[in-house]
C-alpha cells in the first residue's frame, strides 16, 4: 500500500494540511464548551487527519492505529464515558452528576473537568471508529 493516492499536488496539499487539521481538532475539543463544536466534531477531525496521513504516507505514516486495535480503542472511548458516569455514582451522586467528582474544590471546575472528560471519551470513540472503517475499507487489518 505504498503507492500514491492522488497526484503530486494532492499529496503535497494533504501533507501540509494534516498538522493544521490536528491543531484545529484540539482547538475544537478544548474550546468546544464556549463555541460551536465538541467531542463528535473533534473526533471526526482527528479521524480525517489520521486517514489523510495514511493516504499520503502509506505504511510509513506517523499517526496510525494499527489493525483491529482501532475497534478496541473505540470501545475504550465509550467505556471511558461510561466510567466517568459510574465514578460519579461511586462518589455519592447520580449518574453523570459532575459536581460529585472528587477532583477539585470548586464545583464549577469539577463540572468543566467532567464535561471535558466525557468529550474526550466521545472524541476517542469517533476517531477510532473512523480509523477502523478506513482500515476495513483498505484491507489494513492484517497489519496487527
Amino acid at each position: 500500500m505504498n503507492r500514491r493516492f492522488g497526484s503530486v499536488v494532492l499529496d503535497t496539499a494533504f501533507r501540509y494540511l494534516v498538522p493544521f487539521i490536528l491543531v484545529y481538532a484540539v482547538y475544537v475539543l478544548i474550546h468546544g464548551e464556549d463555541s460551536p463544536g465538541g467531542g463528535f466534531q473533534a473526533g471526526a477531525l482527528f479521524g480525517i487527519a489520521i486517514v489523510l496521513e495514511h493516504l499520503v504516507h502509506g505504511d510509513k505514516a506517523f499517526l496510525k492505529i494499527p489493525g483491529t486495535w482501532a475497534v478496541a480503542v473505540a470501545g475504550g472511548g465509550a467505556l471511558f464515558y461510561g466510567l466517568i458516569g459510574l465514578f460519579c455514582i461511586l462518589s455519592g451522586g447520580n449518574m453523570l452528576q459532575y459536581g460529585m467528582l472528587p477532583l477539585m474544590q470548586d464545583v464549577v471546575e469539577r463540572h468543566v473537568l467532567g464535561i471535558l472528560g466525557i468529550e474526550i471519551g466521545v472524541t476517542i470513540c469517533v476517531m477510532a471508529t473512523i480509523v477502523a472503517i478506513f482500515n476495513a475499507l483498505t484491507g489494513r487489518e492484517d497489519l496487527l
Partner: peptide, 26 residues
C-alpha cells in the same frame, strides 16, 4: 453534556455499534 448526558452516552454507544457492524461487514 449535562442535562442530556445519558442521551449522549447512548449516542456514543450507537456510533461504536455502527462502526463495529460496518467493520464486520467489510
Amino acid at each position: 453534556a449535562d442535562y442530556r448526558g445519558y442521551d449522549t452516552l447512548g449516542e456514543t454507544t450507537v456510533i461504536f455499534t455502527a462502526g463495529v457492524a460496518a467493520v464486520l461487514l467489510l
